[in-house]
Design a protein around this nucleic acid. Structure first.
Lengths: 215, 215
DNA sequence: ACTTCGGTTATGGCA
DNA sequence: TGCCATAGCCGAAGT
């Protein structure tokens, strides 16, 4: 359709007259798509209430929710199709998420050092740290942040946890991919980083190698 | 269409057989939508190369890019429509973004204290701080983090900037909305927070005062 | 190419 | 409900 759009709520946006595709889903979610890209230009969440109105001789679609509203002015409607999709979507199965890594590491903590696993999602005053371990030699506490890809934020995160931990502890980042600048930043802050290979699903596992960085 | 999807790249996902809507755009972007929600279940960015193949008697759509690939197995195709959209999309105009707030505050710094504006996006060793100002009474440096909605991360952010700033300075958060726990956290770390009303767009504004620095 | 950061981020989980 | 942290986050801008 050829349309212009006005959104007001968490922010305010305007979309000038042009050809676009508008999708309205079963749960009331709306999205306005341009001819390019993955993300919709405008959209509205599942709770939206749809009101089909007119302004002069133009069709105006209004979507309202608690604190937001979206107004699509339809200048020309080229085509309108409806398709039943059903609500038994099996859903997306993700593999190798951070949670998976965390689970794996809690069972294979020796892969990243001479460590003993203590706790997972261990509470600190700055929030829960992914893994709490102990150095078998020194007996020191080690707090580990697990990431698929570790960027600078991982360093800041682990520093907060160290600050909020009851004892003084050593910080460590374990990830499939530790970005170059993150390595330098971690070193600078005395935080150990370890890259591990993507762990295979349980039944396929044989061996893993690891690359380690020190400060 | 009725399809199942396999993605491998930045992560790995599986999507079991069900009815969905697949959108292929001008620039090569693909998205697989379920009947609910805003975000696509699977997708692939603009650079994707499309190969239309077969596996047995089933159509298989493969999308490849540098380090990713998406495979859609089509079990049944209900309908296929093509629509020309054109590439002169005027684009989304955002209003009241953080950048706008920053701009406004740099011109109206007196709204949040007896301050004198010094610099915007002022560099520190921890990255550029939104606004650098000076306390007119004490002469102390004040570093300000501007947000639409300020959550705990704003506190940590400003602390990093204070750490990376050349002089000792006072930290401040200015936002349309400072979340309750963020207020407490800011207080705890000695960081001032100020909530402001959403500034009106430039053309509606009646007057602004400007502060000029003397050398 | 890599990094950083905003976003109407969305989404899920937990207190 | 609010808050936190993840996400294949996306997308844009700067280096």
């Amino acid at each position: 359709m050829n349309c212009s759009v006005r959104y007001s709520g968490r922010g305010d946006t305007t979309l000038d007259k042009y050809d676009r595709v508008v999708i309205i889903k079963n749960d009331g979610a709306v999205s306005v798509h341009s001819g390019d890209g993955i993300k919709p230009l405008n959209y509205m969440g599942p709770k939206a209430v749809f009101k089909d109105t007119h302004e002069g001789d133009e069709r105006v679609m209004i979507f309202d929710s608690a604190r937001e509203n979206l107004k699509i002015t339809v200048h020309q409607l080229y085509e309108e199709i409806t398709w039943e999709v059903g609500d038994e979507e099996p859903g997306l199965q993700r593999d190798g998420t951070e949670a998976d890594l965390q689970e794996w590491l809690s069972q294979n903590i020796e892969q990243v050092g001479n460590l003993e696993f203590v706790n997972r999602e261990h509470p600190t005053s700055a929030g829960p740290v992914d893994i709490y371990a102990r150095d078998k030699e020194t007996g020191d506490d080690v707090l580990i942040e697990v990431k698929r890809v570790a960027s600078s934020s991982a360093v800041y995160q682990i520093r907060r946890y160290l600050e909020g931990h009851e004892n003084s502890a050593h910080g460590m980042i374990v990830a499939l991919d530790v970005r170059p600048r993150t390595r330098k930043l971690a070193d600078k802050h005395g935080i150990t980083w370890v890259e591990i290979d993507k762990p295979k699903p349980a039944e396929e596992r044989v061996e893993t190698t690891s690359v380690e960085g020190e400060c």
